[in-house]
């Protein structure tokens, strides 16, 4: 696969970057498509990346949180809809999060640092496979995406497989998960403000258990372990470990020790959701 930047004319200095500020989401899409340049939301991932290699896209398409439905949380019969440009700290503070995703507010303390959470967006976090992506994957969220062909709503997993560089994420909808048992855990390099080595999410929707992971080996819905667990009565069974290990290894999780940690973390989270604590 060729480097997406290779067709462009990258620049070495910030002062040479042009920041395009479209008036509307559709204009943003057409600019991104026309110039083959990335969107900028909070900029907390994009800037460190380019500051590191001192090689910037010559243009950035700035997204605007004031565009309708791009920011904030709302619930209706479909579930909880989150605007992609909602900051991580807004999300952590929001009363609807306490209602729908009780453990999330505290968990977000472990995502980046406070200043970065004030700038960084939930959409950006999803798009780069950050901590929230495992949660979104386990909850089967549907994303609301705009591109040149119009807008569509589709499952996150499908979007991640198919997405085009000009796809613009407006938000995502979490199904009504009130009453579900949700457990999540992050393994980083230190207690706070660490890139994730592995973030694991375990959800019990009242009927079935869902498992997803993101981190060093990439975002993954743990389908086989789910099947294994859901088809057995004993959720805390230790045997699920081998299934998890195979699944992770088959999907790019190379570090055997990290897989070992994930096996055990999964067993721990499974017993939490099984016990309802």
């Amino acid at each position: 696969m060729s480097d997406p930047l290779s067709e462009l004319n990258p620049v070495t200095e910030r002062r040479a970057i042009r920041v395009l500020r479209p008036d509307s989401p559709s204009e943003a899409v057409s600019l991104a498509r026309r110039f083959k340049v990335p969107y900028m939301a909070g900029g907390t991932w994009l800037q460190p990346t380019h500051e590191r290699d001192q090689c910037w896209p010559e243009k950035l398409v700035a997204l605007n949180a004031a565009w309708p439905a791009f920011r904030g949380l709302e619930d209706d019969s479909r579930g909880l809809t989150v605007g992609a440009l909602t900051s991580l700290s807004e999300m952590a503070r929001h009363p609807l999060v306490r209602e729908y995703l009780p453990p999330l507010a505290l968990f977000l303390n472990r995502v980046a640092g406070p200043g970065v959470r004030a700038l960084g967006t939930v959409g950006g976090n999803l798009a780069v496979g950050g901590d929230l992506s495992a949660l979104a994957m386990a909850l089967d969220v549907r994303v609301d995406v705009l591109n040149r062909t119009g807008e569509r709503t589709l499952p996150l997993s499908r979007w991640l497989r198919e997405r085009a560089s000009d796809d613009l994420l407006r938000g995502f909808t979490i199904p009504d998960c009130r009453g579900w048992r949700i457990s999540l855990e992050k393994l980083g390099y230190r207690e706070r403000f660490s890139p994730t080595r592995a973030t694991l999410v375990c959800v019990h929707d009242g009927d079935r258990v869902r498992l997803a992971v993101c981190g060093e080996g990439g975002l993954l819905r743990l389908v086989a372990p789910e099947t294994f667990v859901n088809d057995r009565a004993d959720l805390a069974s230790g045997d699920v470990g081998a299934v998890i290990d195979r699944e992770l290894a088959a999907h790019g999780w190379q570090d055997a020790h990290l897989r070992m940690a994930l096996r055990r973390m999964t067993t721990g989270l499974l017993s939490e959701v099984a016990l309802g604590t």
Binding site: D3, N9, P10, T12, E13, R15, A16
Partner: peptide, 12 residues
């Protein structure tokens, strides 16, 4: 990748 080594500053 080709790097533009003398970038023109964009309009302030």
């Amino acid at each position: 990748m080709t790097r533009q080594t003398q970038p023109e500053p964009c309009a302030p």
